[in-house]
């Protein structure tokens, strides 16, 4: 069992399914179990894709069929 902080709220969580998790990692928790460690690099990539969408906003509606997010 590990102590997991959710924005300052601490709950005992089983790491039985995320043996790779080390203190400082972000984990995805469901009914008392960590189901995965969050891949921070992937999270940044997703956010980056969202940011890249911005120039494809309202002005370029007609010619932006969405090649920007692979």
């Amino acid at each position: 069992m590990a102590r997991v902080s959710f924005g300052g709220v601490i709950k005992e969580v089983s790491l039985a399914y995320t043996p790779e998790a080390v203190p400082g990692d972000y984990v995805l928790v469901h009914v008392g179990f960590a189901l995965n460690t969050v891949d921070e690099e992937e999270a940044q990539k997703t956010l980056e894709l969202l940011r890249q969408l911005e120039p494809a906003g309202a002005e370029t509606i007609d010619d932006a069929p969405g090649g920007e997010a692979a």
Partner: peptide, 12 residues
């Protein structure tokens, strides 16, 4: 970001 995504979705 939600507004931008919404705009992109309208566009596509």
């Amino acid at each position: 970001a939600a507004r931008e995504l919404s705009a992109a979705l309208h566009a596509v």
